[in-house]
């Protein structure tokens, strides 16, 4: 006879977990809208729509239950993370193509939920960055809405069809990211103290961006409280990024940005709580998580400072994804009663 014990379970379903992750992104998204307008919402909607349609099609071809696997929410999480990673004024087809690639090559070619080797959102991001480097580096100027009197309608226009706008408007809206700006200015031998006087900088990181980071931080703390993620990844990643940045900063503060700037800029906080915490493509052992977080922190810093791209998160994560099986096998916890 089949012994099916335990007869009781008490676990949130995969859907509940994924929807809590989406919920945790809301504060960051709200602050994003506050700082940069509605562009990000359009991108999220486009990404959501694309992911649902693409996944439905793929699931139908693979003869898997569509409803179950759409409602598990994992596709939406990847799509939202991608939408939050790309410039909010990128043309609409960027997020559509990105999501398509992310969900097919990041997830379903490996066998779908639970089987992907790479972080799907970061895979999509990396492909976009390599394929469309120009578009992917055109970020919106923070506060451009208020200071330059640009209407939110223009934002929709720039995403949907930028030819509807004058070149001046577009220029008034876009700039490089703070990380990018530092990088290019440093090659022009400007000291950091001068560079950071540009209007896109603010107290901690980039103007507006630091605010969004605080939103992500709030969401991340919620995920910790709900025990959806464990502390190992965010803490080890942020600590390693902070420490290596401190070392460089203390040696040459005019060439290297402050550790706090590194933590609060780019996608550091999003990465700490939402990206490297993807369970499927990350390590499972507590020690493994710590090594993984440390390694990504170091790689992010190295790519930001010495690499060809201003932001290193996507590549750092993808590189470390390859080592996950190795990390796991080397960090097996001591079993009860074993030496």
């Amino acid at each position: 006879m089949d012994n099916r014990s335990p007869y009781i379970v008490d676990a949130p379903s995969v859907s509940v977990i994924m929807f809590k992750v989406l919920l945790a992104l809301i504060p960051g998204i709200a602050l994003y809208v506050y700082a940069f307008g509605l562009g990000v919402i359009i991108n999220i909607l486009l990404a959501s729509l694309t992911v649902i349609l693409t996944e439905s099609a793929i699931l139908a071809i693979r003869k898997l239950p569509i409803k179950v696997f759409i409602l598990d929410g994992s596709g939406l999480v990847a799509a939202w993370l991608l939408a939050l990673s790309i410039p909010s004024i990128a043309p609409w087809w960027i997020i559509v193509i990105g999501t398509l690639l992310c969900i097919t090559f990041g997830k379903h070619v490996y066998g779908g939920l639970g089987y992907n080797l790479f972080n799907p959102a970061m895979l999509g991001y990396a492909i976009l960055l390599i394929s469309f480097p120009l578009v992917m580096s055109q970020w919106q100027i923070p506060g451009s809405l208020t200071e330059n009197n640009i209407e939110w309608l223009d934002q929709i226009k720039i995403i949907m069809n930028s030819s509807l706008l004058s070149k001046e408007t577009i220029d008034a809206m876009s700039s490089a990211t703070p990380l990018d700006y530092i990088k290019t200015q440093l090659t022009l031998h400007q000291p950091l103290s001068v560079i950071q006087q540009n209007k896109i900088f603010s107290f901690l990181g980039g103007k507006g961006l630091e605010l969004i980071s605080l939103g992500y931080l709030a969401g991340g703390l919620y995920l910790l409280k709900e025990k959806i993620i464990s502390w190992h990844l965010p803490v080890s990643f942020l600590a390693s990024l902070f420490i290596i940045a401190s070392i460089f900063y203390s040696i040459a503060p005019d060439t290297y940005a402050s550790p706090l700037f590194h933590v609060m800029s780019g996608g550091s906080i999003l990465c700490a709580f939402f990206i490297i915490t993807d369970p499927v493509s990350g390590p499972t052992t507590p020690k493994g998580k710590i090594y993984f977080g440390i390694a990504i922190g170091l790689l992010v810093f190295i790519i930001r400072i010495f690499g060809g791209y201003p932001e290193g998160i996507a590549f750092a994560v993808l590189i470390m994804n390859i080592f996950v099986p190795l990390i796991d096998s080397l960090t097996q916890p001591r079993i009860f009663g074993h030496k």
């Binding site: 977990i17 598990d72 066998g111 369970p279 990350g282 499972t284 052992t285």
Partner: peptide
Amino acid sequence: MPCIRCARCA
């Protein structure tokens, strides 16, 4: 559902 490697079991 497929295992999502969440390590709750561990």
